[in-house]
């Protein structure tokens, strides 16, 4: 479990995160939602230790994260940023192999090879094993990077807008994979996501930020309601509940929502 306490971050004079305290329970999928500029990515980057907070503390299993060596942290928390390194000439298998760097520092052992094969298999990327990542489509490339993060075999996965620029099929594939990682392998997943419908249908818990502050957080059933989403996004929401999940309709607001 990761918990954050009184986290703040300022860029120049602008406060991007103010006094945020919340927790990300183990073995659950938690979605960070909120309007643009709410501080979602900043919070995620701090969990990943890519940014350091100005104030406050992050605890991984009750241990302050800055007390953990970076090399050890990489065996407990894996991070995927928005599709990086596009002009690299690497095969999918080589890329996924990088996920084993925290363990083997570059020379893959038998265990590493198994982890790589498992991760590729898990995302059904086996036919693309020898394909070069600069020749893949955006969706396939995102899957390859996700496979690398999975091969890192960490308890916790952090993802920054993993569905960015993906078509619906790839988006569903990625979200289903995250769900299975949580349900079948007991991993903790935290992701920043813009599509409220994916957040509502695939996560256990929602953490909503607005203007750098924690707006609300809790299980999906308590948080994905018309009133709360309207307040968060300043949009008119109509939530349709059916046996296949809930659908948040905000496309054609009723009344005066400019």
């Amino acid at each position: 479990m990761i918990s954050v306490h009184n986290l703040s971050k300022r860029y120049g004079g602008r406060t991007v995160l103010a006094d945020v305290s919340t927790r990300f329970p183990a073995r659950q999928v938690t979605s960070l939602i909120g309007p643009n500029g709410a501080g979602k990515t900043t919070l995620l980057m701090m969990l990943a230790r890519l940014l350091s907070p100005d104030q406050g503390e992050i605890l991984l299993a009750e241990q302050p994260v800055h007390d953990i060596r970076l090399a050890d942290y990489a065996r407990r928390v894996a991070t995927l940023r928005q599709s990086p390194g596009i002009n690299l000439r690497l095969t999918v298998e080589e890329l996924v192999g990088f996920g084993r760097f925290p363990y083997s520092r570059g020379t893959l052992t038998e265990t590493d090879r198994h982890a790589v094969a498992d991760a590729i298999e898990f995302l059904s990327l086996t036919p693309l094993r020898q394909a070069y990542i600069d020749e893949l489509s955006g969706g396939q490339r995102q899957m390859a990077f996700l496979a690398m993060t999975i091969a890192q075999q960490t308890d916790c996965l952090l993802l920054d807008e993993p569905l960015n620029n993906l078509d619906m099929k790839h988006a569903v594939q990625i979200m289903r994979a995250l769900r299975r990682l949580c349900d079948e392998q007991g991993r903790t997943v935290v992701l920043v996501i813009h599509d409220i419908n994916f957040a509502a249908n695939y996560s256990d818990r929602i953490v909503a930020l607005k203007q750098g502050r924690l707006h609300f957080s809790g299980p999906v059933a308590d948080t994905v309601t018309e009133a709360r989403l309207q307040d968060l996004y300043d949009l008119d929401f109509d939530i349709v509940r059916s046996e296949r999940g809930r659908l948040c309709n905000y496309f054609n607001p009723q009344g005066d929502w400019s």
């Binding site: 990943a48 890519l50 090399a71 942290y73 940023r81 990086p84 390194g85 990088f98 760097f101 890192q152």
Partner: peptide, 12 residues
């Protein structure tokens, strides 16, 4: 070569 963020998250 993967970039700062990916390298950091791989424990470098």
């Amino acid at each position: 070569a993967l970039g700062r963020e990916q390298a950091l998250s791989l424990g470098v």
